[in-house]
Amino acid sequence: MFRSLLFVPGNNPSMLQNADIFMSDAIIFDLEDSVNLDEKDNARNLVETYLLTTKELPKAVVLRINPVNSDLVDDDLKLLQTRKIDYLLLPKANKISLFVLDKILKKIENKIELKPTKVICLIEETKSVIDIYELAKHERVEALMLGAEDLTSELEINRTTEGKELLYSRSRIIYAAISNKLIPIDTPFTDIDNQDGLIQDCKNALNLGMKAKTAIHPSQLETINEIFSPSQKAIKWAEAVLKKAKELNKGAFQFEGKMIDRPVLEKAKKIIEKAKLFELM
């Protein structure tokens, strides 16, 4: 479970050496878009050496590899030998790229006796938005992440703070993820200095059903964590509801003038589960 995932360019030592102190639930070490073609070997080696020699690693380590149809991916996947990578982020995820990655991973996992590597699909093509339910059913997939920059580029539309242009893609990702018990992760907000815009963008995504958001700068993490965490008010309500439910032992009852039944109790349980996981209580 995540609230925030921070992209760190794989070839940036300053960001790497602070990766464990950022307030992010996961760090995405990027070998793809943020790294120039002639620096791929530098980035790969830096991340590998960092993973092998650093004692305090981030809570979760995600590696964004290069596209599976590139000649870079085989070297990227050698980093699995560090046994420190929790998830692979698959760029331009679609039925074919996921199929190809699965085949490659099976070979590697057999060869080095590695447990199955979980995959986060980066949904950044229109065809992936259409095929999202098939991607979501794949056994390796743990989360679906929206990549709005490539998607809006393909659609030849502009991104807005209001985010109406992302309503369809966000909703498809959320429904596909939730119905398959995966985590829907929202696209980063790229206007780093616009704090009000970030708040609005986070709330838009949260209200649709996104459970986490990616960040492209550490300054975005506090806002993202706050908005994607249950509030103290919600935690207190959930605790009180669950306590009352235990006392009454009834299928349905009234609490503070409102009816509480199974779906509401499930919601309260999820709030408490998240609050415990994110150390909010």
Binding site: L16, N42, L46, T49, Y50
Partner: peptide
């Protein structure tokens, strides 16, 4: 680790 990584490359 950065010095080692850069030298290896």
């Amino acid at each position: 680790y950065t010095i080692r990584a850069r030298l290896k490359v």
